[in-house]
Structures are given as C-alpha cells and as structure tokens.
Design a protein around this nucleic acid. Sequence first.
RNA 1: UGAGUCGGCCAGACGGUCGCGGCGGCGGGCACCCGCCGACGAGGAACGUCCGGGCUCCACAGGGCAAGGUGGUGGCUAACGGCCACCCGGGGCGACCCGCGGGACAGUGCCACAGAGAUCAGACCGCCGGUCUUGCGAGACCGGUAAGGGUGAAACGGUGGUGUAAGAGACCACCAGCGGCCUGGGUGACCAGGCCGGCUAGGUAAACCCCACCCGGAGCAAGCUCAGACAGUGUGCGUUCGAGGGCGGCCCGCCCGAGCACACGGGUAGAGCGCUCGAGGCUGUCGGCAACGGCAGCCCUAGAUGGAUGGCCGUCGCUCCCGCGGCAGCAAUGCUGCGGGAGAACAGAACCCGGCGUACCGGCCGACUCAUCCA
Length: 124
Amino acid sequence: MLPAQHRLRERADFAAAIRGPGGARSGSRLVVVHASQTDTRAGLPPRVGLVVSKAVGNAVVRNRTKRRLRAAMAGRLRGIPMGTDLVIRANPAAAQATFAELEAVLDQLIPRVTARLATGGGGR
RNA sequence: UGAGUCGGCCAGACGGUCGCGGCGGCGGGCACCCGCCGACGAGGAACGUCCGGGCUCCACAGGGCAAGGUGGUGGCUAACGGCCACCCGGGGCGACCCGCGGGACAGUGCCACAGAGAUCAGACCGCCGGUCUUGCGAGACCGGUAAGGGUGAAACGGUGGUGUAAGAGACCACCAGCGGCCUGGGUGACCAGGCCGGCUAGGUAAACCCCACCCGGAGCAAGCUCAGACAGUGUGCGUUCGAGGGCGGCCCGCCCGAGCACACGGGUAGAGCGCUCGAGGCUGUCGGCAACGGCAGCCCUAGAUGGAUGGCCGUCGCUCCCGCGGCAGCAAUGCUGCGGGAGAACAGAACCCGGCGUACCGGCCGACUCAUCCA
C-alpha cells in the first residue's frame, strides 16, 4: 500500500478522475492512465488509485498486478505535479507483463497526461 | 527387489534493499498528525457457499397445514446431510475398497424394442387325443398341454422321481426363496439352529405416494452508538367497535399498537463499536476398538475497508531435458561428476467455528498386503 496521503479512496474521486471535466487520459496495451486536477486540491500531494477488474484474472493475479503497479508508482510520486489525482487502470495484458515492462510504460504515459493537464485541456 | 492398499505431514530456504497494516514503547506534539525502535502479519484448501452451529435483531419463538430436508444399527458431537464402529449387499488372492442401504401384500402410474404372449399373462413352432378327407406322403377342424424351441433385461422356482394320451407342485424328496412360530447369541441392525405352512411371489419410490424423525424468519450491508443533511404537500383508512405491524406462504392463538398506505417532491449512505480469547492451540496423562471425552501444564497466533501481509536483486537446494565423462551389467537400464537450458502447482482472510465438495507441480514419513529371491 502507498503512504496514506497518496492514496485515492473515495468513490467520487475515482469517478472524477476517470470521467470528470478537465480530465486527461493516455493508454497503451498494458495500462490506461487517467488524470485530473481540481482547485480544491491545489498544493496538496498527488494521489494515486488503482483499478484492476476481474477481466485481468483471479484474485491472486489481480493482487500481484496491483502490488507491482503500486511499487512502481511509489518511486514516481516525486515526478507528479502537486494537486494531481491519477487513476491507473490495468488491462488484461498487464497480468503477463514483467516489472520492467510496467515501469517503462508508466514512464511513457505519466508525462504525457500531466502535460495535457498543464495545457488546459482534456486531451482526448 | 517389484506391484499395491491405507494413514499422516510439508507446500522451497537464506540474505540484501525499498515499502505497507494494525499493536506495544519512546519522543515531537497534545485538534489531528509525524518520526524512531520492537515483535507479529494468508491456506490446506483462505476457494465453492452445499450442510450444521455460535452470535445479532425480530415481544415469547406456541399449535396445526403446506413447503423443505434426512433415511441400515449403535455411538460421538454445540449441531449436522459430518465422523467412528458394526450389520447387510457387492468387488478384490489379499491389505482393503464401494453402496441416495426405510416401505412395492395401502393405493395409483410407468416398463420402449423384440416377441404368440409382459402381471387375474400367453398356444407361434412343437407334443398328445378325437373326428373327417386321402392320391397313404399327409392335410383340415375341434380339444388337451407351459416339459422343449424361439424373443427379451425379465416368461409364474431348480434338480430328480411318481404320474399321464402328452403334460403340469397334480403329487413326493432334496435345494433356493417367502411367510409364521419357537430356542440361543447380540444394546441393536442382525446372525445361528429347529418346526410348520402354502407350493412361488417381476422391476421402478433419483415417479406420485406412505411411514419415522428434523426444521420459526432474516442475516455482520446482522445489529448497537454517535455525527450530519433536508421540506414538505395532497388523498384514503384508523385511535380500546382499533388501521397497521410482528422480516418468504396459509389458518388459529398470542403480542405490540397511534399512526399507517399511496402519489409527487427533497435528503443521506461519514465515523466508531461489533472485530477477534475461541465448542482456541500445543504437550503429557487417563478412559474408550475408534470417533471422542476427562484432567494437568504451557502459549496468545492477521484484523484490512479502493481493501495491508508485498516489489526488486543475489546465493543455495529441488525436478526435467540436452551434451561430454566414470562405475556396475551380455543388454535394457541404474548410480554418479561437470557444463548449459527450462520449470516450480492450485490458489488470497473480510464475523467466527465444525464438516462436506472441488482444484493442485511435486516431496517426505509410517503401517500393512501380495509375488519373488536370500538366510
């Protein structure tokens, strides 16, 4: 688990990051990254939430996938702007990916969504 | 040594590094939070949610019906559809294994195809007797017959005899099976033996049904406490002659009872408790064939809530494959050394226990059976 201040835990926050106004999204074969920024959280630490559905695998596979994504994100929190909420959604292919592959795809996708937020825009 | 049966256990190990959860301690601080240290932190099935309980709420959890479940006997247990022992039936040379194992003389239904006939059965062929015809080979009609053939999963006991025109439990002996009685053994299911009877009875209850026994309902989003939010309006019924409610159905009884139902509109779903000390685990001992129980000592062993118990790296061990060697052997093959490669299952607590069922790479230990060899 991530430190408590970096955890996204309310259902409403998940919905806002995935579907809310002013959100950005970028995806690949392994994962999809959603991001949003709201004025009420300006200056607060970034938060991350994970979505791993049953399509990914059984409980053991889902747990392992979440733990790897969580471990990969723990070292990348510094690179995320203050006040940003991120939701990482795992695709079924993520279950077979190695840790290095997951790290590579996150390094590619996270700068892309945060840049889209900065340009004021909902890059869909 | 080979083949096999049963039972139990394990579920890679160690180290480094970066993290997480609740708990305890210390400090900053004392609203809330942060830092450091310490021990602890998934399974044999945590799984499926198929049974049984505890616990919580429904006033008590009452009677009957319906529905549902269970089904050899005795025991164990909080309880069970579980477990143990035994009985009966079946399989195996054996260790042992398998059985949804009450009732088909309470009633109803069904039994395809084949076959002449399928449950108050049935004369197709055959066998026997009589009458008639005759070309003396036989044929037709009437009657008797269930011993033989043929069909079928199943054809109204089996073998031998008496008997007869031919036959038949028509009669007799023995055997099988059925019913009744008696004696002995066992708590019992049942077993052993004797006598008598009528001579013979199909299967299916996982079809309806009958019998005996069990069962109130809902579930931790149970339930309790606190905090917070909003906004009511209209219609109908009713206040001991009573609406409505009592958590899946119906009736009776009992209880609560001043609000309830419907339509439109509005709001909330946050925190804490429940939440882990329990039919608890381990060891020893006693009783019991055993399941299990009694006693004594020691131990405390996950409690998350977008959901912790992990991510990454290294070393060693295990299994399999390939290559090159060594030893034993006629050979198949077995053991072993080095190098390279691959693999490591099924699966993740969510109130807690007792079971069942299902999934699973492999490894270890013990008891026993059969065959062969040696002594």
